[in-house]
């Protein structure tokens, strides 16, 4: 579970080392997976026509077989169906959390990067303080105050990713603001607003698309972690973290109940990373 801010910096750096641009095997696989996840989220019945909540006590704890590819759970629900149908929960939570984190990050980062030294200093100290609540701590504190649940877990994940985004956006803004082309625009007689709108904002915001892609994968992992700990979505919701949490009790007898939902979390996160980097590299060389 790596921090998104660091991931993004890494992506930025690796983009410069000039790797070949042709479509790699990894990118192709990530594309196919991404498509699968997208269909799962938008039209799950297309890939898994069954009912994700439909119980069948006679078929409980069935190991993976031809009838039940990923096995069944304690009530005989088909894990594959649940995993596919759970995609939309996880993706919506991930996207929402990323939007919250990125939104806050943009506000904080822009304040720090644009409004002069005093604001920058203040925002920076504030971010430093937030970094002293590493990882899940900020999310747990938020849940302590507002109670567990899907909504609070989503906001909590968004909150805890915000400082990382803010720092990246601030750095990007400061770099762009000091770029030679901004000076060149001043020499051409452009006003501050024109420069801000035409040069600084586009060049700062374009990389955020990549950040967001990487961030969704990360946010899904975190939100699933909270659900797993019983602080987010609750069983029998077909959310992946909640499914894993339910499977925990039967870990000794029915490993498939935990394995497949987790596998999907990993695949989603990997897909997001690979696609994010690929987009980044292409944007850089386009």
């Amino acid at each position: 579970m790596s921090d998104l801010a660091q991931q993004a910096e890494l992506t930025t750096r690796s983009g410069q080392s000039g790797q070949p641009l042709r479509l790699g095997v990894a990118e192709g696989m990530a594309g196919v997976l991404g498509l699968f996840l997208l269909i799962s989220a938008v039209a799950p019945q297309f890939l898994a026509p069954g009912d994700p909540l439909g119980i069948d006590p006679l078929a409980a704890f069935a190991p993976p077989s031809f009838a039940h590819g990923f096995g069944t759970d304690e009530s005989g629900r088909d894990i594959y169906t649940r995993v596919v149908h759970g995609t939309q929960y996880s993706l919506v939570i991930g996207v929402a959390a990323t939007a919250i984190g990125l939104g806050l990050g943009i506000v904080l980062g822009t304040l720090a990067g644009m409004l002069g030294r005093v604001v920058d200093f203040t925002v920076n100290r504030f971010l430093e303080v937030l970094f002293a609540f590493p990882g899940l701590l900020l999310a747990l504190l938020f849940i302590l105050v507002f109670g567990p649940g899907v909504a609070t877990a989503t906001i909590a994940v968004g909150l805890s990713t915000a400082p990382g985004y803010a720092r990246i956006i601030r750095g990007q803004l400061i770099a762009v603001r000091g770029a030679a082309f901004v000076e060149a625009a001043t020499v051409l007689g452009r006003t501050r607003w024109q420069i801000l709108l035409r040069h600084i904002l586009p060049n700062t915001l374009a990389p955020l698309f990549v950040l967001a892609t990487l961030g969704v994968g990360q946010a899904i992992v975190w939100a699933a972690t909270l659900s797993y700990l019983g602080l987010g979505a609750e069983p029998p919701t077909a959310e992946w973290g909640a499914m894993l949490s339910a499977g925990r009790t039967y870990i000794t007898s029915a490993w498939w109940m935990s394995f497949f939902p987790g596998l999907f979390i990993v695949l989603t996160a990997v897909t997001a990373t690979v696609l994010g980097r690929s987009i980044d590299r292409r944007m850089r060389h386009a």
Binding site: M1, V221, L244, I251, S258, F259, G262, V266, V270
Partner: peptide, 22 residues
């Protein structure tokens, strides 16, 4: 590296338990 970095602790832990303990 990419796969390892994407592994959630809770899933890795349960998988390790299944394989090495059970």
């Amino acid at each position: 590296e990419i796969v390892a970095a994407a592994l959630p602790h809770f899933w890795l832990a349960t998988s390790l338990i299944v394989v090495f303990s059970i």
